[in-house]
Write a protein that binds this DNA or RNA. Structure first.
Lengths: 176, 176, 176, 176
DNA sequence: TATGAATGAGCCTTCATTCAT
DNA sequence: GATGAATGAAGGCTCATTCAT
């Protein structure tokens, strides 16, 4: 049921999507949509929330806390790209949407904060005061790569990790 | 006239912004708005277009084609962040908005393509077939850093470049 | 079961009251409500009917047909005000509601007709052709006084009768 | 434009009346209705307000402050019934409607308060502490008579005054 | 030419009402 | 026999868009 909503939202955008459309796609009637998931805004947030949770969970499942930090990082990224590759609609598009729309920025920011925090812990500690913005930029690179994955279906999502590895200094240049 | 539109769009978001509002802010009447800039969608695209053009131009002006590639890159980035810092409304917010909204993705993609192309020419040529996605990810990191700049006014935008330098392998790892 | 309906209707008004709400308050499920009392409109009419019947009955019980007409009248009024005082929800509010709403005006009119008829028989017979409208106005005064009683709980409802006696010529001016 | 609204509201009741219907009847389009008169609730209140103001004005115009109190009263009543007779839709029905509907009770109460006050000043001062409820009941009788007038078109509205005179002790039984 | 005034079209939301269990 | 779950239908409201002045 959320699946249908995610599909429609991702295909048409938040505002262009109509509740009629979503209800139809979900195979239920509009009043049910409202009964189960509340207002359109709440529905969108629910979508966002589910996708974000799943994504974060997929990453957490992949990261081995006992491994060395950089391996954790690459494992996490691999999981990330794999997930995005498997949830085109779900993640990337919702994410792209929610980023700008005011009522949803908060939700996205929260999720990104979780990821930045996760990443921050894995970055070399050479420059403590810079960690936040640097991690932020790293997440940006990762997201862009995710967009690339989404826009190039059929390609092995594992490549994304390899390519990032080429771009980023972290794995080789550890200085901590 | 576009200035007013940009200001309103960035403050309220594409859908929340009303043509009344924009016409008022521009000091003209709605029919004129339509006469000069067409539909709301076209108006937004016009805004996007102008901001994108200005940004790219600012970068091109800063890059010295005769300088070594990596210096070109860092000069371009400095210009980029300086521009974004000076055009908060114009760039970041419009950009954040347009990214997801279907009718505008094309325009954003076009601009990003220009930047990717620009960057691609400056990246080390070690892996020709990977250049596009890697440049794409780099642009993503840059955009994220731009967001960070926009969200932290008062900070020196020059820091953004320094920080990116710390993140990216490019300056040191040149292998071409 | 009607009690719940009356309570809800009086508290929230006919349209604001939902069948869900009423069913909940009655401790049964909506389909039962429909099975027993039919449509919402019919339900409201049923409420109206019961309250009207009870009120008229209370009056009839109080009036002693063998007493002189004006004593009958005052006894009836006393009973009326006492009843209204004891059935705030039931009478006044339903009545106030039903008066304007088109589908219910008939029911209210019917009840009022019964009261007018009752009163007509007790009025001095000086002007036979005028009896109906005069009785009608008298009933109006009585109803207004009833509203006053309802809006001033805690006051002795007996006062209402005294006050009406001051307003109306009837007890003194009998000419039949 | 308010005329159309009054007509529709009186014919169909507040809730049954649709804005489409009213706009059609007014010969304009719905957005204009909203532009000029705001929300449906506000529209209804505007109707109420206008009718109430007109009615009170008609009464004030008829009352001669220099005349003796009881003559003032009868003059006011005559004007009242004449007005109601000429504004069937406008007054009686709106009044009947607004009385019960919660958001409008205030408006009606305000108008009635004005009338009660007006009447109170004209009642014999024999029982000062009772004046309010008694005046209230008197207004009720007057309103009922107004209903009768509305429900019997073609009859001379002057009769209403005569009949009230028969009912009420005031004109003859003055004791102040 | 520039605008005040007007509208068609559509969206979100809510209930009274009824099946299938 | 009783209900949880489902819906058709409609209503208020807004906004991009355009005539008539």
């Amino acid at each position: 049921m959320l699946d249908a909503a995610v599909a429609i939202f991702s295909r048409r955008g938040y505002h262009a999507a109509g509740m009629d459309e979503i209800a139809d796609a979900a195979g239920i009637s509009k009043p049910m949509l409202y009964a189960y998931l509340g207002t359109k805004e709440e529905l969108f947030i629910a979508c966002l929330h589910r996708e974000a949770t799943r994504l974060v969970q997929a990453i957490l499942d992949a990261v081995r806390p006992e491994a060395p930090p950089d391996e954790q990082l690459w494992r996490g990224l691999r999981a990330f790209f794999r997930f995005v590759d498997a949830h085109r609609d779900g993640w990337s598009v919702l994410y792209r949407q929610a980023r700008g729309q005011e009522p949803f920025a908060a939700e996205v920011a929260a999720m990104r904060a979780r990821m930045v925090e996760l990443v921050s812990g894995l970055l070399p500690r050479s420059t403590p005061d810079d960690v936040a913005p640097i991690a932020y930029a790293l997440v940006g690179a990762v997201e862009a790569m995710a967009d690339w994955v989404v826009d190039h279906p059929g390609e092995d999502p594992g490549l994304a990790t390899t390519r990032l590895r080429k771009l980023l200094v972290l794995p080789r240049g550890r200085e901590d």
